[in-house]
Amino acid sequence: MLLILLGLLLWSGVHFWKRIAPDHRARFGNKGKAIVAIGSVVAIVLMTIGYRAAEGTFFWGRSPMLTGINNLLMLFAFYHFAASGAKTRITKWVRNPQLTAVKIWALSHLLVNGDTPSFLLFGGLFAWALAEVIVLNRVAPPAPYHAVPVKKEITALIATVVVFSITAAIHIWLGYNPFG
């Protein structure tokens, strides 16, 4: 579980860097984006390897009901993520749709993974997203909402279904059937 923790710390560090030390981050210019990207990839690798190798106490597992709720929440998570890029209508009410997507993703995975490695990984990413929202709300004023064409809404919905399908296929390929 140490690798999960190290991955979470690295993930949080590179993502908070711009908010906590904006002048330091700005000095790096475009190289700072590369540092964040590389740090994010290394963090994901650490969390993935750590999660796959971790052992811990098991409290609950998947059930058909929790699996269905998880899949429905994942559709909402993917939609929020797509909505942030397309600036769809939901961004009028949800200020940080990408971070909201991470929180929904984390909670949905906790529903079907009731073991201590999952508590650390998904709970840790939920805590990071929540802290990021708090920091963003303190340092950046909300951007004004601008109405978007219906085409963007449709594009976000299509992207949601496509990404959900690809993600489900990858889970099945890895041996984790998200539908059963």
Rank of each mutant, 00 (worst) to 15 (best):
G13Q: 03
W11N: 05
A77F: 06
I158A: 09
I69V: 09
L174V: 13
A127W: 00
T88M: 07
R19K: 13
A26P: 02
T100N: 15
T160D: 00
T160N: 03
L66D: 04
A101F: 03
R19M: 15
M65P: 04
H146G: 10
A21G: 04
L136Y: 03
K151R: 14
H15Y: 02
A156K: 06
Y145W: 04
R19S: 13
V45S: 02
R52Q: 15
S108M: 01
E153V: 07
F16C: 02
A34V: 14
R19N: 10
N30K: 15
L130G: 07
W11S: 05
G50I: 11
V139F: 07
L120C: 05
Y51R: 07
A54E: 13
Q98I: 15
G32F: 00
L107G: 10
A159D: 06
I4R: 02
A159K: 10
S84G: 14
F119D: 08
I90T: 09
A143I: 09
P178M: 04
V133E: 06
I158K: 07
L174P: 11
L8R: 01
R89N: 07
T100F: 13
P142Q: 10
R62T: 11
P117I: 07
F164A: 08
V150I: 15
V161I: 12
R62Q: 11
F81I: 12
A82T: 07
L110Y: 03
W173R: 11
M1S: 12
A26V: 04
Y176H: 11
L46W: 10
N30M: 12
E132D: 15
K151C: 11
L120P: 05
W60Y: 15
A34Q: 12
L10M: 05
K103Q: 13
W173K: 12
